[in-house]
Design a protein around this nucleic acid. Structure first.
Lengths: 255, 255
DNA sequence: TGAAATTTCTTGCAATCACACGAAAAACCG
DNA sequence: CGGTTTTTCGTGTGATTGCAAGAAATTTCA
């Protein structure tokens, strides 16, 4: 039996019965209990499950919950890694701005799991929803017009609101990060949000995932020298590395 | 059987029969009486139960302790009806403010189904999510601190944002609507949001569902004369009907 | 009523179970 | 075949549970 099949099977059983028992799964699927535990951990990253001693179950779904379709996004290991790394920078009591990129969403997931006491400021509907039942996280959402393709709030309302807030850190993503143009984005509204988030935060962190470094977009976010830290999952070329060093920007590669 | 399942089962039996006997539970759940005693201790921490020698029982159920979930399912149809009625007031191109009440959420559901071209302004995370893939509805969310029990944005950020917006209609709910105090609410933040929504809208609609008319709450929303329309699902008493007529407030009863 | 008998409760303790973690083994993949 | 991923196994730790014994409450019965 394939590992992925086993995962699907467990999910199925969860949805069917509302709960699963580790010892049972271990016996019926013929793998060790440790494996089942690890499986449940993985499942917990994509869907909302409650892990308890001896098993796991789905939380009772009431009308007052955020629809699942919003919750479920494709889960990528590399981004998860970046998310985990970013959360290491956080400590109890800190405030952090998160944009509407998927990577920021991973950071959010990791914040929730870490149990750290954090204030999250975001323009992402997904991220706000993520914390809708959180005990440790205080959420401040900026308002604005809902942009449906990214489930984020944009427009002058959003940037205005951001300008009245400040945070210890900002985790922001971009479409491209190049030597000449700095960080740039495809969408004007999002670019302005990101720019503002960086401006209003003490430590300015740019998250660059597998996205290419070398094809600039039209809307500028900031110059490279404006950043404090770049977190990425791919090896940084010699030239870029030099640029970062010159401009005094720290680089963190997660692999 | 998982420990947590056992706890749930005991709670269930408690709610069903009003009481439980330790020796019975021990036999049926196949654990020692000590374990049951310990379970009851745990349950006592989350809900109010009276422990007596040999068992436990729920203190006399004052009706208002009926689980919220049951209430919601009971009144589901009525609320749906109210929602449908409210949407009849809307036409293509209109803008509408919706608060974070469950009834407003039903209005939202009906707007989405109606396919009318509407702009929705809301402080409800649920309602914003509801339209996250909508084609016909433009969503403007106010920002603010996420209040988790109701999944809504509250605080000065929220009211400030609302004050800069305006709409054709506002659909707003309240905890109580009384002759003397007008519309009142339990939660201060929500009350201010509702008040502001009404202020910023041309047609001011108050939705009053099963909630009693006659038990005022602490935070004022508005006077009865400030309203244009009251939508409700219960027969309106003679006295209240007179009050509405005097103050020139239209009443719509959905049955 | 008062004392013994019975039941239930509390507490400490030991056995068991679930868990996390790291190391080793196995499976998988290019 | 080498390297990576997945799984298992072993160990230490902490939580849960059942047992036993004594305390407290309740019942029985003279």
């Amino acid at each position: 039996m394939l590992a992925i099949e086993r995962l699907r099977r467990i999910e199925e059983l969860l949805k069917e019965n509302g709960s699963v028992v580790i010892s049972n799964l271990s016996a019926t699927l013929d793998v060790s209990e440790e494996t089942i535990r690890r499986d449940l951990e993985k499942i917990g990253k994509t869907m909302k499950i409650k892990r308890v001693r001896g098993g796991a179950f789905l939380p009772a779904t009431t009308d007052n919950e955020v629809p699942i379709k919003i919750r479920e996004t494709i889960y990528l290991e590399e981004k998860q890694l970046i998310g985990a790394k970013c959360v290491e920078l956080l400590e109890d009591g800190m405030s952090v701005m998160l944009d509407s990129s998927t990577t920021a969403w991973y950071v959010a997931k990791n914040i929730e799991q870490s149990q750290k006491k954090i204030t999250v400021i975001t323009n992402s509907l997904l991220i706000a929803s993520e914390f809708s039942e959180s005990k440790n996280v205080k959420v401040i959402s900026v308002g604005g017009v809902l942009r449906k393709s990214t489930n984020s709030f944009v427009g002058y309302m959003a940037t205005d609101a951001l300008e009245k807030l400040s945070a210890d850190l900002a985790f922001v993503s971009c479409t491209a990060l190049t030597k000449g143009f700095g960080a740039t984005d495809n969408h004007e509204g999002e670019a302005r949000i990101r720019k503002t988030m960086l401006n209003q935060s003490i430590k300015k962190v740019m998250i660059v995932d597998y996205t290419k470094f070398d094809t600039p977009a039209v809307n500028p976010i900031c110059k490279i020298r404006d950043l404090d830290l770049v977190v990425t999952d791919r090896e940084v070329g010699k030239e870029m590395r030099m640029v970062f060093e010159d401009q005094d920007v720290e680089v963190l590669v997660c692999k």
